[in-house]
Computed example of a mutant assay.
Amino acid sequence: MPRPAEPGRSALLDAGAVVAEREGLRGLSINAVVATAGMAKGSFYHHFSDRRSYVIALHRRYHDALTAAILADIGDPAPGMNRLRAGIAAYLDACLHTRGTKAFLAQSRTDTDLLDEVHARNRSVAAFIEPDLGAVGWPDPAAVAHLVVAMVAEIALVELYAGGPQQNLRVAVIQMIDPDSRGDARSVHVE
């Protein structure tokens, strides 16, 4: 049974983020993680039962940190277009500046160990933005929320591979969600 969080567990997760960024999820072996952490292989098994449980913990940690950064950035505005716009910008900016984004956004979509995690996280984000879309006036905000999550995740990947923000895509997604914003180039401003 895995031990609760402690410095050794954190060191292994930190090392995994480095390996995932450098080698991707396919290169995320237990040997690579313990070598990067400077720990014995047995230490890994004191904290994680197997590679699958480790990768899930690493994925959750990445997304929990991303969520915390986004929520800190947007504050607590009332549901609506301003909150949605701020959240999308915060998410895209955080993806560009967070270690392991390629592994945990692109590669996690095809990693069978993470499929349930990816789907659960997407449902959670969709549920969070559903009130924003309802406030904008969408008749089926749940369906639109699902599509917005997919569009924004795709923009994050395009920006990641391009090496920076793609303002045209950021503006386009806002204009697709809120036709009243057409012509508003500040839709998802990059700072």
Rank of each mutant, 00 (worst) to 15 (best):
P7Y: 04
L13S: 02
L13I: 04
A15V: 04
G16M: 05
A17H: 09
A17Y: 00
A20V: 06
E23M: 05
G27L: 13
T36M: 08
G38I: 03
G42S: 13
H47P: 06
H47A: 13
F48C: 03
D50L: 11
R51F: 04
S53W: 08
I56M: 14
L58V: 00
D64Q: 15
A68P: 00
I70H: 01
D76Q: 11
D76L: 04
A78K: 03
P79W: 12
N82E: 15
R83Y: 00
R85F: 01
A86M: 07
A89T: 15
L92M: 08
C95E: 11
L96Y: 10
H97K: 04
T98F: 07
R99Q: 05
G100A: 08
K102H: 10
Q107D: 10
T110D: 09
D113S: 11
D113Q: 05
E117G: 02
E117F: 05
R121N: 12
R123F: 00
F128D: 12
I129Y: 05
I129R: 09
E130F: 00
P131K: 03
D132G: 01
G134K: 06
G134E: 07
A135N: 02
V136E: 03
G137E: 10
V144Q: 10
H146M: 08
V152Q: 06
A153Y: 01
A153H: 10
L160T: 11
P165Y: 04
N168E: 15
L169E: 10
I177W: 08
D178A: 13
D180T: 12
S181V: 03
H189V: 13
E191P: 13
